[in-house]
């Protein structure tokens, strides 16, 4: 009986609150409709599946060795003009993550570590792609700080127009 009284009192409080809320909302100039007419534009950043990555100096990369899977994270056009020897081009795109199938194809080689280089900007597309790959559960993922400029300086590559 006492419990019922309690619930009744609580119900009365909710009813009074509802009446007060609707009345004040009707009177104010910036009131909102009781039922929203359009979906709210909510901006909640998606959780990024980024994993841990390790920086690796160009001098420590085993260029041309199958043990290092070298990935160029720059756009196709830029990678087409110059790319490190043996590098595979996987353009990094914030809105288009690397699919599991694509990743499986890449990792089917007998590499024991993955080395990614990108544009070297801030943020560096190479580091971002490396985090994305690592976020898929791949271990031993590295990126080259400084990106393509650091790689080219090390390799002494010539620009191909």
């Amino acid at each position: 009986m006492r419990g019922l009284t309690l619930v009744r009192d609580a119900g009365i409080v909710v009813a009074i609150s509802t009446v007060a809320a609707f009345s004040v909302n009707a009177l104010r100039h910036d009131g909102i409709p009781i039922v929203a007419k359009e979906p709210y534009r909510i901006l909640v950043p998606c959780p990024e599946p980024g994993g841990d990555v390790i920086p690796l100096a160009p001098a420590d990369v085993r260029w041309g060795d199958a043990a290092d899977l070298v990935i160029d994270a720059r756009p196709v056009a830029e990678a087409g003009s110059w790319s490190a020897p043996g590098a595979q081009n996987v353009p990094f795109d914030y809105l288009d993550p690397v699919s599991d199938d694509k990743l499986s194809d890449l990792l089917s080689t007998r590499c024991d570590r993955v080395v990614v280089y990108g544009d070297g900007d801030r943020p560096d597309s190479g580091e971002e792609l490396a985090r994305e790959i690592s976020g898929h559960g791949v271990r031993n993922v590295h990126f080259v700080p400084g990106g393509v400029a650091a790689v080219r300086t090390h390799l002494g590559a010539q620009v191909t127009p």
Binding site: S17, A21, F22, V35
Partner: peptide, 23 residues
């Protein structure tokens, strides 16, 4: 709405009534 739990029809109702209950 950002919690993405309630259906759209109940979002404003909750937003209007809950603060008054709290008060």
């Amino acid at each position: 709405a950002t919690y993405q739990i309630l259906p759209l029809e109940l979002v404003n109702l909750q937003a209007l009534v809950l603060p008054w209950v709290e008060l």
